[in-house]
Design a protein around this nucleic acid. Structure first.
Lengths: 104, 104
DNA sequence: TTGACATGCAACCAATTGGTTGCATAAGGT
DNA sequence: ACCTTATGCAACCAATTGGTTGCATGTCAA
């Protein structure tokens, strides 16, 4: 699955955030906040795994998920060229990303 | 339409890139590179408009589209916290985005 | 060994997506 | 006026999405 598609669902973004903030978690744990069924969570996680954003390992009966933020870099790099039209704070971003020529 | 969803389709990303690189364009012009029908292009553009990523005005019989990269900032800001685990070049990004505390 | 718990697998469903085609209409050029 | 061009509108379609439920299975603890 494409990384952009992986990010297009709010539930999946929440899962990513949870893994980021709370570290490795099981399906059960990840589903606790959400209002959807366990299987729905599993499906979202499977998509994140396909997008290489999440890795899973088994610890006994639990499937433990870990975030791999790497693929997000691709998104950041895609966004880069546009950033120069944003506000000062984000414009500076570009300067330090290598676009050292003056801003427009 | 949500900005993340707007970015999830490769055709829409291409449209954004075209508007970025070539400036304001009509539906016809935007569709010229693509292998899909004019209506498919229109639908994608309508979605980009709903996501406020693109504005359209009429010039005679043509609908001229202009890119508004602003909403992309939301995506960049969402990505920020994760960036600190990326490579040096992108890590520096965070420093200048305000996360002045030392890297891990 | 028995039961509770975490998960997997599969079928099913409604809504959305990404695309098409056909026809209508307004604007411009000759 | 006439023809071409750019677009709009609407119906339609197959595939995908995001969700559900029911049942099976492996693991752990008592």
């Amino acid at each position: 699955m494409d990384i952009f598609t992986a990010l297009s669902d709010p539930v999946r973004r929440q899962l990513i955030e949870a893994l980021w903030q709370r570290g490795p978690l099981s399906i059960k744990q990840l589903g606790e906040g959400l209002q959807i069924s366990r299987q729905a969570v599993t499906k979202h996680l499977d998509m994140l795994i396909k997008a290489k954003l999440v890795s899973a390992r088994y610890a006994g009966k639990e499937r433990i998920h870990e975030l791999n933020p790497r693929p997000l870099e691709k998104v950041a790099l895609w966004l880069q060229p546009f950033a120069k039209q944003w506000d000062d704070r984000l414009s500076r971003l570009n300067v330090y990303l290598g676009e050292q020529h003056e801003q427009d």
